[in-house]
């Protein structure tokens, strides 16, 4: 948790102070895309080498996806509800911020 916060803060401060060119951010986007794909591959390997996960997959696999699906559906439903209740149109605000 601390490492995550420090990594984010370090990147933010360097970028805020240094005022990089637009070209830098274009390359940054490309590097992060490659890094992201690689991270997902590594995360997959971590799941694959985990004996506990792979051994339980036949019996608990379906159950776990049902429970995860329930948790995600519940989260999405309540957040959509929150969006409807929120008086200010968040999408308009997002467009303003993007501009």
């Amino acid at each position: 948790m601390i490492q995550v916060i420090l990594s984010l803060a370090a990147g933010f401060i360097i970028s805020y102070v240094c005022n990089f060119s637009d070209r830098f951010y274009k390359y940054l986007g490309k590097i992060t895309t490659f890094g992201l794909i690689f991270l997902l591959f590594i995360m997959g390997i971590q799941i694959g080498v985990n004996e506990k996960v792979m051994a339980n997959l036949p019996t608990l696999g379906l159950k776990s996806f049902i429970l995860a699906g329930g948790a995600i559906l519940g989260s999405l439903s309540l957040v959509i509800l929150l969006e409807k209740v929120t008086i200010i149109d968040s999408q308009n605000k997002e467009r303003e911020i993007e501009e």
């Binding site: 984010l8 803060a9 970028s15 940054l28 986007g29 590594i42």
Partner: peptide, 16 residues
């Protein structure tokens, strides 16, 4: 390490 590097990159992007 890859994760921290990527989060560092997210930080760089946010700092823009």
């Amino acid at each position: 390490l890859i994760l921290y590097f990527l989060i560092f990159c997210v930080g760089l992007d946010l700092g823009k």
